[in-house]
Amino acid sequence: MAVASIQVSETPLVLYTLRRADDALILGHRLSEWCGHAPMLEEDMALANMGLDLLGQARELYSYAAKVEGKGNDEDKFAYLRDVRQYRNLLLLEQPNGDFAHTMVRQFFYAAFADLYWRAMMKSSDAMLAAIAAKSEKESAYHLRHSSEWILRLGDGTEESHARAQTAIDDLWAFTGEMFQVDDGERALIDAGIAVDPATLHSQWLKTVLSIVSEATLVLPKSDWMQQGGRSGRHSEHLGHLLSELQSMQRTFPGVTW
């Protein structure tokens, strides 16, 4: 790679904002990978639309992180010039698209969480975060609706769609616990009324997930062992491949524009 990665001064608020921004960028990028490959044209558009929603969220969050950090970084540098270990997204969101069921289950698990999360963040004492949350909540509400409808149809559809949906749930379940974990820095922001305490959202999230999954005649795994690491930069092997594609232009031709 031709361009070195940037240094980021990860104060608690910068780190907190980057984590949400990385979530949105990485999931948005994953959805964009479906463009031209979705099972039908209608779904191709829907997935790209949701990807663009997430990209918009990422841009606002990166810009805010850059402002808070005040070290001359910007949204593009955060997106294009950080290495794998500097990314702070949830492991769930970097998991490959797999089949359509995997993509929808991943979307469903996250949207059910994100919708609650943004709604809670609208009450943040940080006005900028509250404003970003207010805009994002309407988007995540639709992502939840869209993915829920698909979970119902895949689970309660054909034998094959049911089997694929159940496999996707079994494969991705262990990545859901990370959504509800916080570290000390984030805990301080929660106490200050800036950040959202995800633990307070867990029961509602589980209720939403359980009701859709049960109605879809699917089941949640019994195991409560949860994988973690993304929030502190320890990622699965998939993220490096994703970033090599996402970053290749800026790494090869620094500062290139359309």
Binding site: M40, L41, E42, E43, M45, A46, N49, Y142, R145, H146, E149, R153
Partner: peptide, 20 residues
Amino acid sequence: SLHASDATLALQAARDIYTR
């Protein structure tokens, strides 16, 4: 027009295709 398996999904697809 568009393709969808049922009315609910048709409404969602219409939202995504025709009101972007």
